[in-house]
Write a protein that binds this DNA or RNA. Structure first.
Lengths: 120, 120
DNA sequence: CGGCTTTCATTGCATTTTGCAAGGTATCAT
DNA sequence: ATGATACCTTGCAAAATGCAATGAAAGCCG
């Protein structure tokens, strides 16, 4: 085991916390999926109903990523095995707080934004 | 002037504050530019020194966007007209707080992140 | 069973964005 | 005048996105 550096979580652009957060959620869709999850959405089809109209391939990809990163789990609903149920892991619940921070910043700083769901 | 609706800030995906924030900074680079500005970077070349190694065309584009959106200004340095100085507008300073929120969330929730500049 | 619907996901293809290297212009230094 | 510096653009390959269409597995219902 000569050159086994200790797996430094590579393909990171840097160890700057800002850069790492952007590597995780720095795109136009991931946090919208998080928003919907926070609002109680659990099924694939429900995400498609949100007003931003995410495409199915993007949604599929983002759910996979979030799952791979350990922020959500995917389970088959026992009563109907066609359905999958997506939910936050404990760790994933922190994403809700992140999304909430963004939401509050947006409400304060971007004109004409409105919170459909003030509880966030 | 019949059909001059009042320019409803279109090309928005929705009026959800999360979606609007993502329309502004939902990419891998914009907030890194904001970070550098917050750290005192003012010249084009300095942004290129950051460890994430942004490409010149992307940097040029992001500076333009931030300027177009009224968050930063671009001025020519009087003493050396080759140089441009990029600085936050009053409104742009709010981007620092947004970036700071992300940074703190990342430090707390993403392993092996380190703050080079704890003042943020 | 046999056909039809629902749910989740993939595929193909056009468009857009990114990444990288090279080139270009204006300004400055000697 | 020559060369270096600062900012930006261009060209082109690679990747991500948007979209419509297609699958596959599971359920529903005669």
């Amino acid at each position: 085991m000569a050159n086994r550096k200790k797996k430094p979580t590579l393909d990171r652009r840097s160890n700057c916390p800002v850069a790492c957060v952007l590597d995780l959620v720095g795109d136009k869709w991931t946090l919208l999926v998080v928003r919907d999850l926070a609002l109680g959405v659990t099924h694939f089809e429900e995400f498609l109903d949100s007003p931003e109209k995410i495409a199915t391939n993007i949604l599929s990809d983002r759910l996979k990523r979030l799952q791979a990163a350990g922020y959500i789990t995917k389970e088959t609903e026992p009563a109907d095995k066609r359905k999958s149920i997506y939910t936050f892991t404990e760790r994933g619940k922190e994403l809700k707080t992140l999304m909430g921070l963004l939401a509050r910043w947006g409400l304060k700083n971007i004109p004409n934004t409105s919170a459909e769901h003030p509880e966030l």
